[in-house]
Computed example of a mutant assay.
Amino acid sequence: MASRTEEFDLRFAGLDQWSDADFLMALWEGQMRAVASVGPILQDLAAAANGIARRLGGGGRLVYVGAGTSGTVAWQDAKELGGTFGWPEQHTIVMLAGGLQSAPNEFNGAEDDTDLAARDIQQNDIGEHDAVIAIAASGSTPYTVRAVELARERGALTVGICNNPDGSLIKIADHGIFLDSAPEVVAGSTRMGAGTAQKAALNILSTLVMNKLGRLFDNLMVGMRAENIKLRDRALRIVCHIASCDEGRAKDALSQSDFDIRIAVLVANGHQVSRAKEVLGLSNGNLRAALEYRD
């Protein structure tokens, strides 16, 4: 039996002959249904985030696993964690079947390669300190399913996200999550509804994890890397806001701290850089806890 993402939805019979307005409306409604599918699984995402944060807080790595569209969605989420939250790249692993640089035929074919999944798990030494987030629209992609099976055998925490209620990922992962994004408007084109639902779910999941690891203060990205003019200006505003200081003091603090926002806030509040680093370390990188720290 075909997975739900492969179903032919008869509501869209004759789609290729619809007017532009009706065609686009159908696609837009499909995207809205996809985003709406995340609402009912927020508690599942919260439970997964708590488990992931515990592993990462203990020094573990965040591992993304996927193939095809799901793999590239996972890769995008992983890639953005460093710049947005300052999450270290050495603590992020992306296992994308075939790799981003592979030729189209290799990229598509790699999703069936369970031996490749085993090699990738072995080479990355996935273990009990790590947290694995695996994504597959069908929930049955051989590469992804095998990677989760092996990661769990090795003691890693596993989260499986799919768009099929009968997907194997739901059954084999510690946290199996079903995104009810409905059959695709363009049958089987999971880059559309399923991909949008996955992106929204990952955005929410990884942001909550980063918050639990102290990478936010209020709604501000205090772990952010200020690597260009726009981000340096943002860093300046953040330090001014949290430390309640003027721009001159904030600029000096940022300069002393190599534009590490959390260190800069502590420096602007009167700490020497070395002490600020010590206090932040004792607070597990959590700025709010560091500001409240007392010897």
Rank of each mutant, 00 (worst) to 15 (best):
L56Q: 12
G57N: 15
G57Q: 15
G59H: 12
R61A: 10
L62I: 14
V63W: 13
V63G: 09
V65P: 08
V65I: 15
G66H: 08
A67F: 06
G68V: 06
G68Q: 09
G71I: 10
G71M: 09
G71L: 10
V73Y: 01
A74E: 08
W75D: 00
W75F: 06
Q76I: 01
Q76N: 10
D77G: 13
D77E: 10
D77Q: 08
A78P: 01
E80Q: 14
L81N: 07
L81V: 07
L81K: 09
F85N: 11
G86K: 01
G86D: 02
G86R: 04
W87D: 12
W87V: 09
W87N: 02
W87K: 12
P88R: 03
E89K: 11
Q90L: 07
Q90E: 12
Q90I: 08
H91K: 07
T92L: 14
V94F: 02
V94Q: 01
V94P: 06
M95K: 11
L96T: 03
L96M: 09
A97C: 02
A97N: 02
A97M: 02
G98S: 05
G98Q: 00
G98N: 01
G98W: 02
L100S: 14
A103Y: 02
A103F: 01
N105R: 06
E106N: 00
E106H: 02
E106R: 04
F107T: 00
N108I: 09
G109R: 08
D112L: 15
D113G: 12
T114P: 13
T114N: 11
L116M: 15
L116Q: 15
L116G: 05
A117I: 05
A118Q: 12
A118H: 09
R119T: 08
D120Y: 05
